[in-house]
Each structure stands twice: as C-alpha cells, then as structure tokens.
Design a protein around this nucleic acid. Structure first.
Lengths: 135, 135
DNA sequence: CTCGAGTTGATAATGGTTCTCATTAGCATT
DNA sequence: AATGCTAATGAGAACCATTATCAACTCGAG
C-alpha cells in the first residue's frame, strides 16, 4: 500500500480549496488549528507536498521566499495573476506566451523548456480600498 | 555621503560578474572566502542587495527557496533563459510578453502589474553532453 | 591628520521548512 | 471483530538561508 486516506489529508485538501488564492502552509495550518483540528504543522506540509506532486495543487515562491500553494481547477498548464495585497488569484491562459517561450528557447538551442510566467499586481478591490480613503 | 567604495563591494561585484549564471549569496560568499578574503557573510548579502537595488544585478527565487543573483548586462527590464544543468543564462527581450502582461492585468482590473517571466531548459551543450555518451 | 558617518564581520536571532521517532490508526486479512 | 503490518501523525528538534545587532573599523572630505 502506498498511500492511505486520512481525515487530515482531506482537511488540508478542503482548506486549500476554500482559499481564494495562494496561501502559505503556515496560514493553512493556523486555519486548521482554529477549526479545532489538532493537526500538526508537519502534516500540513506533507499533505501539501503530496497534493503538489500529484498535480492537485501547484506552488510558487513568494518574493519573500515563502512557499505558497493553491488548489488547481485544471491540471493543465496555466499561469497566474495574483493580487499582492489580498492574494486573490486568477488563472489565465497564455497560448501566445507558450508559443513565444517555446520559440525563444529553440532559437537559443535550449531543449525541454519550462517556463514561469506569473503576474503580480493589485486587484480592483484592493486598489480601491487603498486609494479611496486617502482621497 | 550615502555610499562608500570598499574593496568588499568590488569583490562581490567581480565575483558576480565572473559567474556564468545565477549564483546564491552563500556560494558567492564561499568563493570569496576561498580567495583569502576575510569577507563576512552579512557583507555579501548587503552588497548583493545593494547591487540588486541599483539595477546592476537582479535576483530570482530558486525553486528551493534560495535567492539567486546575477550581474545584469543591461539595466533595462528583461527576462532570462536559464540552463537548469549548468546555470548558463541568456538575457532575452520579450516586448510582446510585456504587452500581453500589461493587457491581461488590465482586463482583470489589476493595477501596478509586475511580472515574472523566466524560461528554464537545457542548453545546447548540456543537452549534447547528456545525450551524446548514451548513444 | 582628524573627525564623523557609513561599513564591516562575528554572532545571535528569526522564521520557514524538513527531519526524527515514538505513537496512532488505515486497511487487508483471518 | 480481532490482528498485524506499516504508512501517517504530531511535538519538537534540527536545518538553513537570511536579517538584525553592535562594537570596531575605515573611507574620504575638510
């Protein structure tokens, strides 16, 4: 037997699905603790690593070096538009960029190209919230 | 006076320029130590942060969460094509992608968009080296 | 040369992530 | 339902990259 079903893994999967955008393992752990689950931090990390490995979630490094995770709605290749204030994430397609990346890699003799394409910005509501009070 | 010229900063700048691709602060520090400079780790970090701030170097997060630095040949905005085997880095322009990123952010109501666009692959010589012997 | 402020470097502190290991609990079998 | 095997769990230690601390130092202007 290679993998067992435990309520802990379910809870992590659920919590990740509930999150609107990318969340850190730490905050996910904090949330789960508040929900009266005595779940351990190490378990959250293990569950997230497992989900990421199986393609059910993907991860990226925040500029601060923290690892962020998010449940994937599709398991296909896609990119992200991320609000740097509230963490809201929009999955975006970028067929043109795919082509460009492939072409660029080929031009320089590179093979097996993978690419990282993510956009960080301020979503409409956050921009509003930050600007509004000041005016 | 806001900034002084010290031999330490010069050495860090030189070491960074000598590196073919991205290097971590740790390995840069190790190299400089081997060169009989009693340079301190904190100083290397400070110098790198300074170079990155002034645009003489840029940084990215490795998948392992380490910060990597590289001397920039141009100070303009650009992207990278990185060999995942030998670390060789090619700076690339991507005007189309810039446009696309800006447009995509706007479509979703995002402001102040920054983007991360990097391509990882296997450079020609590494692909050759890895394939050749096997055939 | 002298003075003052930016720098340096050894070390402690921080904080995220991984490891350890005794205990717990899936799950297939009896 | 009871049993046995073993993966999974969780508390805390271990790790490691990075940052902060602070006394000693040194660049460089006057």
């Amino acid at each position: 037997m290679a993998q067992r079903n435990t309520w802990q893994r379910e809870r992590v999967r659920d919590a990740l699905a509930d999150a609107r955008g990318f969340v850190s393992a730490q905050s996910l752990h904090a949330d789960l603790r508040q929900a009266n689950t005595g779940i351990g931090l190490a378990t959250v990390y293990r569950a997230l690593a497992g989900l990421a490995a199986s393609g059910e979630a993907d991860s990226l490094q925040s500029p601060e070096g923290e690892a962020l995770y998010r449940a994937c709605t599709t398991q296909e290749h896609h990119h992200h538009l991320i609000c740097r204030s509230c963490g809201l994430t929009v999955e975006i397609e970028a067929k043109d960029v795919e082509q460009w990346a492939k072409r660029t890699a080929a031009v320089h003799g590179f093979r097996d190209a993978e690419h990282v394409v993510d956009i960080f910005g301020l979503c409409a509501s956050c921009a509003n919230r930050l600007d509004g009070p000041g005016a």
